[in-house]
């Protein structure tokens, strides 16, 4: 099994986890109520932290996702090109 394949699986699982964390931080606050009602940027933590993660942090994660998966596509294309040269 080549490294590009393993990378593809790893990226999919890791980025899925990161995306889910960014969009579902409410779960953290309901599971650990002690984290609630700390004031962050003038808002209760359970309100503003999920909002900021759901927008700004998500944008950063998605930026990395786009960059790394584009690089992976290039890697797979290079492998394919190498394969067709071998066949020729």
């Amino acid at each position: 099994m080549n490294s590009a394949y393993k990378k593809e699986i790893r990226y999919t699982l890791v980025f899925s986890a990161l995306l889910l964390i960014c969009g579902h931080l409410g779960l953290l606050f309901v599971a650990f109520p002690g984290l609630q009602n700390k004031m962050v940027m003038g808002f209760p933590s359970q309100y503003i932290v999920p909002i900021v993660f759901g927008w700004l942090v998500l944008m950063v994660v998605v930026g990395f996702q786009a960059k790394l998966t584009n690089d992976l596509d290039d890697e797979i294309e290079e492998l394919n090109a190498g394969l067709s040269e071998t066949v020729e």
Partner: peptide
Amino acid sequence: VYMWIQFALSIPLITL
């Protein structure tokens, strides 16, 4: 609000 925040995940997850 929590219900709505996660909708921004849709296109990144679909693409992924």
